[in-house]
Computed example of a mutant assay.
Amino acid sequence: MGRAFEIVREFEVDASPEQVWDAITTGAAGWLWPAEYEPRVGGAAGLGGVVTAWDPPRRLTSRQEDPDGIEGLPQSLNQLDNLIEPREGGRAWVRYVHSGIFTDDWDNQYDGANRHTDFYLHTLRQYLVHFTGLPATQSDIHGPKASMAKGSFGAAVRALGLDGAAEGDTVRVELPGAGAADALVDFRNEYFLGLRTGDAMYRFFGRDAWGGPVGIAVHDFAPGSAAEQERTKKAWRTWLQDVYA
């Protein structure tokens, strides 16, 4: 039996409402994953969703609903609502609400979604402040089955040489497919790690905590990065295989 949930976040960011709107609605924006919205109420919102509110740059709502379960999600209803308002100094205030119905393992699904929300929205703010308007080549890599065992995420952090690194530290790290680079640890807790270089963001996900594999997302803003996408994916995939061999 399904049970409703709601996750709410509010924040201000050093970006205009128009920049926030473009980041959320433009598939090339490099903070989450490629997403496209048909710019009208009733338009397609991806993954079988539909746009239910389209008021640029103020309000965007999308909704997916299937009583038999949404493909790829343990849900029968999934809704994302974004309210954006201007603030002094060209800043924007954002109210983000993720709601719906989880159909299985409610506590685990809610905990995972709730914690992912903070990391996703932090990454959005990083994009808006440091890379806004730039298209990204985005690569998502999932670890092998062995990385699904609870407690596996720490092995990836240690393999990067960042076990003792704290949020705000600048580190020298070897990045598969890119080589050695100086990076800022822009997010760090027991579940997630975020690294930002001058031309990319690297996101590390400890989804083993919720029964999934450790994952990596690379958001590369460097010119010519699209031509290197497959090599980047292969390098990180090999790295994960080695970590969890």
Rank of each mutant, 00 (worst) to 15 (best):
G48P: 00
G48A: 05
G48R: 02
G49M: 06
G49Q: 05
G49L: 05
G49V: 03
G49K: 07
V50E: 12
V50W: 00
V50T: 15
V51P: 00
V51R: 03
V51H: 00
V51T: 03
T52D: 02
T52M: 04
T52N: 03
T52K: 06
T52I: 11
T52C: 03
T52V: 13
T52A: 03
A53L: 10
A53Y: 02
A53P: 01
A53V: 13
W54R: 09
W54V: 10
W54H: 07
W54I: 07
W54K: 08
D55T: 13
D55K: 12
P56N: 10
P56E: 11
P56T: 09
P57F: 12
R58M: 02
R59N: 07
R59D: 06
R59W: 05
L60M: 12
L60P: 07
L60E: 08
T61V: 15
T61Q: 13
T61G: 00
T61E: 15
T61C: 07
T61I: 13
S62P: 00
S62W: 03
S62M: 12
R63M: 09
R63G: 01
Q64C: 09
Q64V: 05
Q64Y: 02
Q64K: 14
Q64M: 15
E65I: 03
E65G: 02
D66Q: 10
D66V: 03
D66N: 15
P67H: 03
P67Q: 07
D68H: 12
D68I: 01
G69H: 08
G69E: 07
G69M: 06
G69V: 10
I70F: 09
I70D: 05
I70S: 05
I70R: 09
E71H: 11
E71F: 04
G72N: 09
G72K: 07
L73A: 08
L73K: 07
L73Q: 11
L73P: 00
L73T: 02
L73G: 01
L73Y: 14
L73D: 04
P74C: 10
P74G: 09
P74T: 08
Q75K: 09
S76R: 13
S76W: 00
S76D: 14
L77F: 06
L77Y: 04
L77T: 05
N78G: 01
N78H: 15
N78D: 14
N78R: 14
N78L: 13
N78P: 00
N78F: 13
Q79A: 12
L80A: 08
L80N: 05
L80H: 14
D81K: 03
D81R: 14
N82F: 15
N82W: 15
N82E: 08
L83V: 14
I84Y: 08
I84E: 06
E85Q: 13
P86W: 13
P86R: 11
P86E: 10
P86N: 09
P86K: 12
R87T: 10
R87Q: 13
E88C: 04
E88V: 13
G89H: 11
G89K: 11
G89R: 11
G90I: 12
G90F: 10
G90M: 11
R91P: 00
R91F: 06
R91D: 04
A92G: 07
V94K: 04
V94P: 00
V94M: 10
R95S: 06
R95L: 10
R95D: 01
R95H: 08
Y96W: 15
Y96P: 01
Y96R: 08
V97N: 01
V97A: 04
V97Q: 06
